[in-house]
Amino acid sequence: MFAQCADPKALEGLSWLMCYLTSGKHLLFYASFGTVLLLLAVTAPLALLFGFGGAMASRSRIAPLRWFGKIYTAMVRGVPDIIFFLFVPIALDQGIEFLRSRALCDNPVSPWQGNEFNVCAAAKMPLSTSPEWVHEGYGFTLAVVAFSVVFGAFAANVLYGAMNAVPRAQLETAEAYGMSQRQVNRRVLIPQMWTYALPGLSNLWMILIKATPLLFLLGIQDIVYWARDLGGAKTQAFSYPHPDWRLYYFLAILVFYLLMTWVSERVLARLTRRLSAGQATMGGEALRQAGPA
């Protein structure tokens, strides 16, 4: 990074630390915090979408669709999320490559041969010729999908409850005005359910933040991966030999998560206040009586 860091073993004290903390590996470590934030940013809306689909399916009048919705929302309750994380990406990866092999290979055979899973070069996902960042992006995408499936089921639970919490009278009034089922959903049900869903969704967001270290178990080079790697004792084979420092790295990660949850709590509290305004709930009534702030 800096010119004086060319010969790290000659350095001492603060300048050693400066060079150490700006080594290429540390920059990757810092960048991996971005990976975590990116995962949160992509997963949250995607999970909400899955959840919305699951909740609508659970309310559907078509029985098979309703069963599907119910099973989807029920499955995460009994099974630890980590089992899904170990399972879903592999299943997805093999599924995608299987479909691609049907479409792209010259004479497709079953890819499951003995203990191997092997498709022709053209059907590999991503192609082995692709640059490394494509592979990483693909692995990350699988992780995002796995997270979204699991948290989508959680969100479906919350949204289903919120839809049921919208007072029946509101929907009946809308029907009395001659609105169709779709119109009732769009104009009355969905706008009103958010205020009921927000407490649950806030909690979900907090759970999601605290589930991000599991990325490490999906083979993503996230903050836990780098903390473990950087913190381990380093011999003279490395430019910056040091004893076992994992405790400090994990403390840094702990602080990062405490900050994340602390900021989230503040933001969500403000959001709840905003959404409560003008609603026929206790919170809304309290805001109304307090007068315009």
Binding site: K210, L214, R246, L247, L258, T261
Partner: peptide, 22 residues
């Protein structure tokens, strides 16, 4: 309550082990 609710259990396990072996 803030410390244990605000951080992932996964990290708590890691840290606890690192601290306990000391």
């Amino acid at each position: 309550v803030f410390l244990f609710r605000g951080s992932p259990l996964f990290i708590q396990f890691f840290l606890a082990y690192q601290a306990l072996v000391m």
